[in-house]
Design a protein around this nucleic acid. Structure first.
Length: 322
DNA sequence: GCGACAG
DNA sequence: ATCTTGTCGC
């Protein structure tokens, strides 16, 4: 039987892939109970008025982070994790950091986070421990206290109150939330209380959710391809976009069950290859779409695109020639 | 039973 | 995720 290696401190245990996947499912379910799928942050999105005044006031979202991972062409186990932070107004880069590591966990569809989250969390931790000029220092102390009092995760994140993170990968648009058609409606009518509890568990839990919960950060998930779920497929989405014509560039991703998993957005009216936006953590879909739109110069929003490009460049420069 | 399956 | 050439268009 195929086995995967698992690091448990000093000793390495070999477990069957089925066992490991079961433990991954448990971990996802447990983290999922802490997931917040509505707006839960202190800042506001910049408006025309706030930018006219200058955009420097407290409370207006000023920075957007982006994370991505690239891989070496010769050795797929060598990876470069990247964290960038862009100014939301100018889309200029204000921070970048890289970490080249060897990955031992394979990519398994629906369990991407177990492969990629550790390296990305490490970059976020590192940023937390260093002071950076664009950090709102006042919030930093308050937020730190708040985290100390309320945190039940092992990671206390101080990212400031005016930032959020875009993740290359999905949020709740993820297959573990799959449910039979009309099951949800049935439950809401006859068992409203348990349905409320289930509605939490029915969410998928992709990389963006995983990172958001562990780092206690607002996150949104950006997929460049669709992870098929609840009857949704790339061809379905393209057909729907075609029937919508050029009037609308945004499409709500409603599955067979009636559940909305996210949104498909195309930057160009003529392009039928959209990006897939979904809620990560502490951000509603409406807000996620707004932020994706205001950071999109090209098909892929800038935070993700910059992380993507720079990650590949960094790996190229540092694997050959030093 | 078989295929599909983010990065 | 990565390997890949040119080509068409702003």
């Amino acid at each position: 039987m195929e086995t995967l290696e698992r690091d448990t401190g000093d000793s390495k245990e070999a477990s069957s892939s089925a066992e490991i996947q079961n433990s991954w499912v448990e971990a996802q379910d447990s983290l999922k109970t802490r997931l917040v799928t509505e707006d839960d942050f202190r800042w506001q999105l910049p408006t025309a008025a706030s930018t006219a005044i200058g955009g420097g006031e407290c409370g207006v979202l000023k920075y957007v982070g982006g994370v991505d991972i690239s891989f070496a062409k010769d050795d797929p186990s060598i990876a470069c994790g990247t964290l960038v932070v862009l100014d939301l107004q100018t889309l200029e880069l204000v921070y970048e950091d890289y970490s080249v590591v060897t990955l031992h966990i394979p990519y398994v569809p629906a369990f991407l986070a177990f492969r990629e989250a550790p390296i990305l969390l490490q970059l976020l931790e590192k940023m937390k421990t260093c002071d950076h000029p664009f950090y709102p220092q006042v919030f930093l102390c308050i937020y730190f206290l708040f985290n100390l009092l309320s945190s039940n995760s092992g990671i206390v994140m101080v990212f400031g109150c005016e930032q959020m993170l875009m993740v290359d990968g999905n949020g709740i648009l993820h297959p573990r939330g799959k449910c039979p058609p009309h099951w949800q409606t049935f439950c809401w009518i006859f068992f409203p209380v348990s349905a409320y509890c289930s509605s939490i568990l029915l969410n998928g839990f992709g990389l963006a959710c995983h990172l958001g919960v562990l780092a206690n950060l607002p996150t949104i998930g950006i997929g460049k391809n669709l992870h098929h779920v609840d009857g949704l497929s790339q061809s379905t989405v393209r057909q729907l976009l075609e029937t919508k014509g050029t009037n609308e560039d945004i499409l709500s991703l409603r599955g067979d069950s009636g559940r909305t998993w996210g949104a498909a957005m195309r930057s160009n009216p003529g392009s039928f290859k959209p990006i897939y936006i979904s809620v990560g953590h502490r951000v509603s879909l409406a807000t996620a779409v707004k932020i994706a739109r205001m950071t999109s110069k090209y098909r892929v929003p800038e935070p993700i695109r910059q992380a993507d490009i720079r990650s590949r460049d960094y790996l190229r420069k540092h694997q050959s020639g030093g």
